[in-house]
């Protein structure tokens, strides 16, 4: 029982490089510098730091995530793993295309059929 919905795309969504907005070729010092800057910006609530892009869309950035990402990239072994997943840059055109929608829902169905009070 190790699979759950939360895991789907977790490795793309929570990739340490994407979180810090860096590429796999960056140096260790860049990781620290960028992380420290993002933490400071998040603390001050600057909108610029509030989101980051991934190949599966835009995600909200939190201080915990930034700290965890820094720790990930400090350790060469985990960094290597994240570097492989980060091989695809977040800005690929495919990432911006929204998912093809299912046919629209009919939200007033329960009201119309008498299962809910209107309004």
């Amino acid at each position: 029982m190790s699979l759950s919905e939360k895991d789907v795309f977790a490795r793309l969504k929570e990739n340490a490089f994407h979180v810090l907005g860096l590429r796999p070729s960056c140096t260790r010092m860049e990781v620290e510098r960028e992380g420290q800057k993002l933490l400071a910006m998040l603390e001050l609530g600057l909108s610029e730091a509030a989101h980051y892009d991934t190949p599966v869309g835009r995600m909200p950035r939190t201080a915990e995530l930034v700290r965890a990402s820094m720790a990930t990239l400090r350790d060469p072994t985990t960094r290597l793993q994240h570097a492989l997943w980060a091989q695809l840059p977040p800005g690929t055109p495919a990432a911006q295309v929204p998912a093809k929608e299912e046919p629209a829902s009919w939200p007033e169905a329960p009201v119309r059929l008498g299962w809910r009070r209107p309004g």
Partner: peptide, 17 residues
């Protein structure tokens, strides 16, 4: 202001608002 009280980086960031 947000800045590291102690930094190993020789050029850290200072963020202010």
């Amino acid at each position: 202001l947000q800045y590291p009280a102690m930094s190993s980086d020789l050029s850290p960031h200072v963020v202010g608002r």
